[in-house]
Design a protein around this nucleic acid. Structure first.
Lengths: 202, 202
DNA sequence: CCGAAAGTACACCGATCTGTATACTTTTGT
DNA sequence: ACAAAAGTATACAGATCGGTGTACTTTCGG
């Protein structure tokens, strides 16, 4: 079943692909409102005409930017999950390992969804659904892992793991201390192990 | 001792105070780059001349906005800490209680520092020091609490508590699930208690 | 081989952006 | 009482914003 508010996507011609790549870097590094369409077009080596023929509006570029990043993150994560076994411990570790790689390569300034949310005030903006959707999806993912583990309250554990994960992205982006995602990983797996042990004894 | 990079502050005349109040609301709710000086002046009931006579530039308004919010948060937190005893458990709970109140009243869209960071690319921007400074200060605060508690590794525990705290602000701002700060509070205090118990036994 | 799709080059539009200038009035501390 | 500080009203400047229009060229699958 599709999401209730699936955003409208466009077909990506070669030029559109370069626009999306340029917009992705610029939006993430400088912020959405700080980047103009002229700069995006110039950076992509494309005329503004082409840009508007493909995307129609700057808002649509923003939507494609977030949807594309969301898509790539989920694929990246799926690849990592495919390499490990079915045990909850292994899967949880794999998720955080993926996050660690991803942040090192693509998210030095923190989570693009959180950052985009800071610049969008209107909840009816089509990008809103993507942002909230990814966080809910991550929570559901953690919840599935925790349910598979034999723990007393998988929903609460999953929420706690999400807090650690989101906190780590922030701490990494603001460079509060080194290797925040690794710490989050260790603490999350420790919580899972402790909850499982507690359940076996109680 | 003062911070190495203390930002330049201005004297707040009545007009400047209204500008700062208006800018605070607008910047937080709509984002910094999305708000123009004309709107700030109009909302403050002040002419643009007055605005520029007091602040000199929009960038300086941004600096004052963040410095003021940082100042008010620290004062708010100090008030809460004054009402409780010296025990680490009480102080940690007081910090999260303050956060819960603060987010409910002033931070429905997440942490203003994190949100501002999303819009500022230049690390030499005077606002940068304020943003990073607050997070480091929060980490130091948590570290102090954990050191006072008899736990094996207070620095790591403090970092973990910071992750829970920052994660909660994000989860609250994006409304991933209800009462995220309360969950973070419960989990943080549980971690502190567990670490203290482990230390007494080992 | 040909037509449609995709692209280039470039001029242009109205709105909005940060910031300034001029001339005058109100508030306030001593 | 008086001068300095703080304020109003308003017009303006130059740059940039998102977005459009026209005329021409390139690419490529059936």
């Amino acid at each position: 079943m599709e999401s209730v508010q699936a955003p409208q996507r466009i077909t990506l011609t070669p030029g559109a692909r370069r626009v999306l790549a340029a917009a992705g870097t610029l939006f993430y590094e400088r912020g959405i409102h700080a980047v103009g369409v002229d700069l995006i077009a110039a950076e992509a080596g494309v005329t503004k005409k082409t840009l508007y023929d493909r995307f129609g509006s700057k808002e649509q570029i923003v939507v494609e930017y977030l949807a594309d990043r969301d898509e790539r993150w989920r694929a990246f994560l799926a690849d990592h999950l495919d390499t490990v076994g079915d045990s909850p411990e292994q899967r949880l570790t794999a998720i955080f390992d993926a996050s660690r790689e991803w942040t090192a390569e693509n998210s030095a300034k923190g989570c693009s969804m959180v950052n985009a949310h800071a610049e969008i005030s209107d909840p009816s903006h089509p990008a809103y659904a993507i942002i909230i959707g990814q966080k809910r999806w991550m929570l559901d993912l953690f919840t599935g892992v925790c349910r598979d583990a034999a723990v007393p309250d998988p929903e609460t554990l999953a929420r706690t793991v999400l807090l650690l994960h989101e906190g780590a992205l922030v701490a990494h982006g603001l460079q509060v201390f080194p290797d925040a995602v690794r710490l989050a990983s260790e603490q999350a797996t420790a919580l899972l192990a402790a909850a499982a042990a507690r359940n076996r004894q109680g």
